[in-house]
Design a protein around this nucleic acid. Sequence first.
DNA 1: CGCTTGACACCGT
DNA 2: AACGGTGCCAAGC
Length: 103
Amino acid sequence: MGTSTRFRERVYAAVKRIPPGKVCTYKTIAQMLGCKAYRAVGGALRANKHPMIIPCHRVVCSDGRVGGYFGRKASAKKVKLLKGEGITITKGKVLGFGGVLWR
DNA sequence: CGCTTGACACCGT
DNA sequence: AACGGTGCCAAGC
């Protein structure tokens, strides 16, 4: 494992609870942790070395845009993973965002 | 200990 | 709708 911090572990714990076919936002994760560190949440996910265990592809932007993946602003891989769970992405945004939003 | 960097969010224009 | 500036906060140097 890479550098382990309490903050990151809290982020990972929250992300692991997102069920397949649903998405959550960086903002919501931060709120669950009791803070507004939206960007720090992205930073924690960027450090995630176990995407198969921590489903970070289910974390998207608050306006429905897919957001980044593995340090990149955009990723076809992230879109593919989401589509594989039944989520439709149109023009880089989650279709029916409110309906697939978890929590 | 201080400055910079983000896988973001929000507001004004 | 699309930019651009500002704010949030952990991590890295």
